[in-house]
Design a protein around this nucleic acid. Structure first.
Length: 580
DNA sequence: CTCTCCCT
């Protein structure tokens, strides 16, 4: 359009506002930012047209936003809403936004949208992709994927290959197999450049997949879902689709989130295939039968709303003045159990009162902080305990994926390096040591590299920490350091995470813990500094469920601190503690 | 003895 970014056309993301309110007429932003903007401007009066892109992804915030926009439109019939979605399911979207008869009765004539939602279809600009299926179901998609790559390399003309598997384990195994094959049988694979791709890789390793393919080589990228939508690889002509991805599921009864290898939807399968047609006509090899695709594969995935913990979602709606959360107009209703659980958790944290209204000041302050409510509660308590300087560092580290780079070779070295930072109290205090070291190094990327730290992640920690310190100042809360008093630090953590306490099973030789609240069997994650240390009592930040239930980010505590922090949640029962 | 992926 020939304009400078940040003037007529701008964008806003978490740490960057490239707009100029007096000049900008088109603004790109994430759905989460727009929901945040609603807290100051509930009817989004700044905007006359709102376009929601990628609505088919059905992320938590997209679903929330669509429900909120529908509500806004009743008050602002002149607001134009455009929803763009890559699936054929436009009808359900259109029905959702169609004013219902009972709404019409209560609304004045002129406040009804003057047109029913129109459905427009726009042709994709990709090249055609020829789809191939297997004749018979494959017993092992990893082996099948490796075999398919080799046969493409044998039979098909030049062009890079993108393989979709489910996770780091799968991917590292496939990379290894293909690289070994290169050595065993020069003729078949001599031209292959095999690269893994997943979000845990360091930036340097991720960048390798974007480098142009050397002459005479064929690039094979073995990837998670990250290459399905988040990253785009040019030069891909062949896609191999395993038909699976890892998905998160939340059980509101046990309050545990699990990562499960799940069959993908037809929508995902199409998206994956489309990745082969960006520069020329391509081919997609699906490692499942055509019959399976047509008859058994679900059309759409399950919206995130229906398989997530909803505490963040509930508090945001509360902050927007939506009192009847259960009666909110959802595009897809979340399970009532998950709603009830979220309300319970927020109540136990003192964020909602008996009438499920935000408490003052805690509830309102928590809603202002753009983090998980348990973390926000931890921060607010730290302000009272006088350790907010340290706690916001911890909060920032906990809000990035992982500050360590994933190491597939040098495990032993890695563990040794980690010991330099390890604190007996646990991971949270260890993170403080890492952060201190990073600052002392002058925020050096070299230093990160030497210490197996992810430099990008550390930079993000600094950004998040700065945002939090600005926010606390704005809320009129004190930034104070507790120096070396890690007891007070742990008490502040417990103020947010008292519900996540576990004790080591007596006579347990393999590190078996049970959660205090529901006696679930859990273990300390091998990435924790307390792995194999196994203190008697711990509090964890989150559970990840794969083969076992693993606690990630763990601190050792004294059980009396639990009763001190949450007498309403725990009551003393000799000789141990029990939930009430 | 291990971590799909976005996002405020």
């Amino acid at each position: 359009m020939g304009v400078k970014i940040g003037e007529e056309v701008g964008y806003t993301i978490r740490f960057e506002d490239q707009t100029n309110p007096s000049v900008t007429v088109i603004k790109f932003l994430t759905d989460g930012v727009l929901i945040r903007e609603m807290m100051d401007d509930p009817l989004l009066t700044k905007y006359s047209v709102i376009m929601v892109d990628e609505a088919h992804e059905r992320s938590l915030s997209t679903d929330m936003l669509l429900g909120l926009l529908k509500k806004i439109q009743r008050r602002r019939p002149e607001l134009r809403i455009i929803i763009s979605s890559a699936t054929i399911e436009a009808k359900s979207m259109s029905t959702f936004f169609q004013a219902r008869k009972k709404d019409l009765r209560h609304a004045a004539e002129d406040s009804v949208p003057s047109h029913l939602p129109a459905v427009l279809s726009v042709e994709g600009k990709g090249y055609t992709v020829e789809i191939h299926y297997v004749e018979e179901p494959v017993p092992d998609y990893l082996q099948a994927a490796v075999g398919t790559v080799l046969s493409i390399n044998d039979k098909e003309p030049a062009g890079d290959i993108l393989v979709f598997l489910t996770g780091q384990d799968d991917i590292d195994a496939a990379v290894k197999l293909l690289r070994e094959d290169t050595q065993d049988d020069r003729r078949r694979t001599s031209g292959l450049l095999v690269l893994p791709l997943y979000s845990g890789l360091s930036r340097v390793d991720q960048d390798l997949v974007f480098a142009p393919t050397p002459k005479g080589k064929r690039k094979v990228v073995i990837s998670t879902n990250i290459a399905e939508t988040s990253l785009t690889l040019e030069g891909v002509v062949y896609v191999v689709d395993s038909g699976f991805s890892k998905q998160r599921f939340y059980n509101p009864i046990s309050d545990i989130e699990s990562l499960v290898v799940t069959p993908i939807s037809k929508a995902s399968a199409r998206q994956r295939a489309g990745r082969a047609g960006r520069i020329q006509p391509g081919k997609c090899f699906r490692l499942y039968t055509e019959e399976y695709f047509l008859k058994e594969m679900p059309t759409e995935g399950i919206p995130e709303m229906q398989r997530s913990n909803l505490v963040s979602c509930v508090i945001q709606l509360k902050a927007l003045g939506i009192d009847n959360i259960l009666g909110f107009d959802w595009l897809a209703s979340p399970p009532p159990e998950a709603m009830v659980r979220a309300l319970e958790v927020l109540y136990s944290l003192g964020i909602l009162d008996e009438d499920a209204k935000l408490t003052s000041p805690i509830g309102y302050q928590v809603a202002e902080i753009p983090l998980d409510p348990m973390i926000s509660k931890m921060i607010l308590s730290a302000c009272n305990f006088g350790c907010s300087e340290e706690i916001i560092t911890i909060a920032a580290v906990l809000s990035v994926q992982s500050i360590w780079v994933s190491m597939w070779g040098a495990q032993k070295e890695f563990d040794e390096v980690k010991l330099r930072f390890a604190a007996a109290e646990g991971d949270h205090v260890t993170y403080l040591n890492v952060y201190k070291g990073f600052l002392n190094s002058g925020k050096s990327s070299q230093w990160c590299y030497k210490n197996y730290l992810n430099y990008q992640a550390m930079k993000k920690v600094v950004d998040v920490r700065e945002q939090l310190s600005r926010l606390l100042r704005r809320l009129g809360l004190a930034l104070k350091s507790c120096e070396k008093d890690t007891q007070i630090l742990r008490k502040a953590i417990i103020a947010g995470f008292f519900a996540n306490s576990c004790h080591l099973e007596e006579y347990s030789h393999n590190g078996l813990y049970k959660t205090v609240r529901s006696s679930e069997e859990v273990y300390i994650h091998p990435s924790s500094v307390l792995f194999r240390v196994n203190p008697k009592w711990v509090v964890y930040h989150s559970l990840v469920s794969t083969n076992k239930h693993y606690m990630r980010n763990v601190i050792a505590i004294d059980p009396s601190w639990l009763i001190e922090a949450a007498p309403h949640f725990y009551q003393v029962r000799t000789p141990n503690l029990a939930p009430c």
